[in-house]
Nucleic acid binder design. Structure first.
Lengths: 160, 160
DNA sequence: TTTATTTATGTATTTAACTACGTAGTTTTG
DNA sequence: CAAAACTACGTAGTTAAATACATAAATAAA
């Protein structure tokens, strides 16, 4: 084992990132192995639109937890792939309403069995004595009550 | 709850990344609140050199799990901060041996109490019914035996 | 002992996110 | 209802990682 893994909790951010990157990269290869032209980074947008039908740019950004500029660049790629289309909101002219195209919906049907395989493989990997997904949820929940920064500042002040 | 969080395991890569980013950002602010000029991304290099004393570029890259070009750019920043220095290996002229400077070692002493506070705060956040760090270790371990890709391909072939 | 292969490092470019900033509609307020 | 504040979207530039490529030194092989 290397020093970073031994450092434990202090390097947790690095390790989260590394794990995320590994899964994302393999995810891309799984789609490819099925002959599907789809990038894992598109998943949040596509999946959200599949359930919500029509959303504005900022609404999508909020759903997927990205900033709106990042979301715009994803939307541009998806529009180029003809998986989504957009039209102006007639009531609020500032808004651009995004929807899946029929090509997008077809692709989703094609991906569903792939998603099932991925789910199974990911469950194999993450469902152990400690369930990674549950662990993430629990940590997110803790942070939502009091952030890492707030906790650290409080400990600092108590220390004095 | 939003759609992405509901999608569960499929969006796990996105969520790992998001959590990592949050912790990294708050980490930066914690150092700042102590008046310490230190970026969280430097931690893996500094921490590794603290325990290993002298390492080459590629050795550091392997320890911290980054590619060597990424490591080189971190080393450049750290050299600019005068936290590390490097010299040619006399035996193998290709190698550049990296060490902490005395300024680097002093900074580490200054950071130690901050690291203790961080550890406590991070433990509060991550030690729940499912311990996040243990969950990561368990997942990494599973992957090391058989990757996400290999598992998915196997499930795919079994399916047919 | 040349030649081929491998290893260590470095540079250039790409990628996927971000922040900062600007503009144009919409809503609220005095 | 005009001015101020807010919201939605877009662009530009930055950042932190990666990949791809290049070079030089060391090692192995013919």
């Amino acid at each position: 084992m290397n020093i970073i893994d031994e450092s434990g909790i202090l390097a947790i951010s690095t390790r989260l990132q590394r794990l995320s990157e590994q899964l994302r990269k393999d995810g891309a290869l799984v789609y490819k192995s099925y002959g599907i032209d789809f990038e894992p980074k598109w998943f949040p947008v596509i999946y959200t639109l599949y359930y919500k039908e029509t959303l504005s740019v900022v609404e999508i950004a909020n759903e997927i937890g990205y900033t709106h500029p990042s979301t715009i660049s994803l939307l541009k790629e998806l529009e180029k792939q003809k998986l989504i289309r957009s039209k102006k909101d007639k009531i609020d002219e500032r808004k651009r309403l995004i929807q899946l195209t029929s090509k997008g919906r077809e692709l989703i049907e094609q991906m569903k069995p792939v998603w099932e395989v991925m789910k199974t493989a990911l469950t194999q990997i993450t469902d152990n004595q400690n369930n990674l997904l549950r662990a993430i949820e629990e940590a997110e929940n803790k942070i939502s009550h009091q952030s890492f920064l707030q906790r650290a500042l409080q400990l600092k002040s108590e220390e004095k």
